[in-house]
Amino acid sequence: MIIETKELTKNYHHKDGLVVAIKNINLNFEQGDFVTITGPSGSGKTTLLLLLAGLIRPTSGRITFKGYDLHSASDNKLANIRSKHIGFIMQNFSLIPYLSVLNNVLIPLSLNQNGENTKSDYAVHLLESIGLKDRMNHLPKELSAGQQQRVAIARALVNKPNLILADEPTGNLDPALAIEILEVLKQINIENKITIIMVTHSPTASEYGNVRVHIKDGSIII
């Protein structure tokens, strides 16, 4: 088991009163699972992803990732866990606009300088594997949306994480490119046994998961 939640609850204080975003969710995922989380807008999908990433803290309940209790870990410890074990893929790609493709992929390595040359070679290898080696000195704006998302995937993989959290990774792509990205993710999941948790609106994308979670009003329906 790589990640587990117990009675996970997240409330927000809003001017109109208390908003329950996540309500008593119990989940556990194994290494190598491809999890898709679906649900209507405002159902709490992204909030759940943030909780699993240790980017926000739950109001109550527990989250355990690789034996770490994310609920009680310090901010620095959480950042350290993210940098070493978790990769992120976002809908808007979240690339650094002034860095080349290669430097964008190398960014997570700036937190861990050991074996930099080896890891740099690995970054080039990743770009080669997603067909962007010849574009590694280009800026993100010089790439298509699909290529930018592939760079984000390479960046998520460069630290050899155990878990990839993807928030609507195909949301900004046309259907053909979306399938292309989903295939890349599926390949990573199978070849590297990396757990992928992907939030999506798309029924097609959700089909890629071997574990499918549907959320409504902060609770798991399926």
């Binding site: 620095n76 350290n80 993210r82 940098s83 992120f88 979240s94 650094i96």
Partner: peptide, 16 residues
Amino acid sequence: KKEIGTLRMIGFTKGK
């Protein structure tokens, strides 16, 4: 802001 948020997300501490 967006870039700093990205860096924080992938593991940069406040100190970094």
